[in-house]
Design a protein around this nucleic acid. Structure first.
Lengths: 206, 206
DNA sequence: TTATTGACCATTTGTAAAACTTAGTCAATA
DNA sequence: TATTGACTAAGTTTTACAAATGGTCAATAA
């Protein structure tokens, strides 16, 4: 008779425990043994679900990225009025979701900076999909006559991502110094920046 | 009888020597003694003109910043046609000048990243003046009827700086990976980004 | 028979002391 | 009085060692 599994959702529990401990003590200072102890399982069991410690971190980050992605996807599939407005609002919402998740998990600014730069290169796919979603919005905007058909392409999507880089972490802005980026400040900035992106200086109303 | 000065422009020569050596070996790996040796003067003489090593670095960086600032200033004072176009072209030019100076002096990407982040906080004034110059362009654009009078203010200038952050060093962009930022790539990006900034998605023609 | 475990190994990381480097000073010198 | 380079204090690298931890696997439990 085979030994029955004691936990059916162990991988899930490991993710949850890791997320809490990484958030509390940081990635480096949390050991696999701590995670196992937290769940009252053996250290070896963690390696039945994940091949490396980094794999756990990536899974956590992948979920954050996916959640933020889903905001875009959902908004793109439920456009009622102006597609351009929908893109603006979807970006605004994902900016704030990103902020909330990041400020919950990463406590020191350096950790955020390091992680962001380190990790970004591991999330190529994420950026490719984001670009495709933006192109989706642009196509709908072109159909609705809001923008020129010729600019509903990858190039424009890339520029949009560039323009909105500062409102995503790490928040490396130079307009204010020694001022921490509060939720309110970021929201105000993002809102204005996105309005400017849509209307341009020529038609921007503030 | 007092000993006569052997060098009248020693400070200037130190700056030049430091610029060359910092560029070749990096700031940390260049010692004050090396700089002195390079000019065949005593180590102590360097300290007659500069109180610290860092002061030399700051002076070099201050000159770069000023040169880039001057492009803006000159363009602002010689607007013939559209002020908005002038702002666009002034920014484009300063982006490229910045690139050229930075790629000449900093050889490794890490050095650039580190220096940029480290130094930015020491150049508050630079950003304040840049903001003022941008407000200058906005005021002229408002006078010319190109933009609404209400948006010719500091807030808008801040957003413009945010939007253009990615085309200034450190070039932390995520649209391409493993692709070094070449001069041509940056020029194309900056040009498109600035057109989009002026016209907005609604009126952007690519 | 198979899921689980924790002792075990190899590598990394932390630490403490010694050796070395260098920014900045200042009494001696030109 | 302008300049210097030996000197000092502070910091950095090196080295040697100890502790911690990521990952494996033979033994164990169901």
């Amino acid at each position: 008779m085979a030994r029955p599994k004691t936990l059916t959702n162990r991988a899930e529990l490991i993710i949850e425990a890791a997320e809490e401990l990484f958030g509390r003590y940081g990635y480096e200072r949390t050991s696999i043994e701590e995670i196992a102890k937290h769940l009252s399982i053996g250290k070896g069991s963690v390696y039945l679900d994940f091949r490396t410690k980094q794999e756990i971190l990536f899974e956590i980050l992948r979920r954050h990225a996916t959640a933020i992605q889903d905001i875009f996807k959902e908004r793109l599939n439920n456009i009622s009025g102006s597609p351009l407005d929908a893109l603006r609002k979807a970006t605004e919402e994902s900016v704030m979701t990103c902020y909330d998740r990041v400020s919950r998990d990463f406590h020191t600014p350096e950790a955020l900076l390091h992680t962001s730069l380190e990790m970004k290169s591991h999330f190529k796919d994420f950026y490719v999909r984001k670009r495709e979603l933006i192109i989706g919005f642009l196509n709908k905007a072109a159909d609705a006559g809001e923008i020129k058909k010729e600019i509903a392409n990858e190039e424009t999507a890339k520029i949009i991502i560039m323009v909105t880089t500062t409102i995503f972490p790490p928040y490396l802005n130079c307009t204010e110094f020694n001022t921490p980026v509060t939720r309110e400040l970021l929201q105000a900035r993002a809102s204005k920046l996105l309005l400017l992106l849509v209307n341009g200086l020529r038609h921007y109303k503030g």
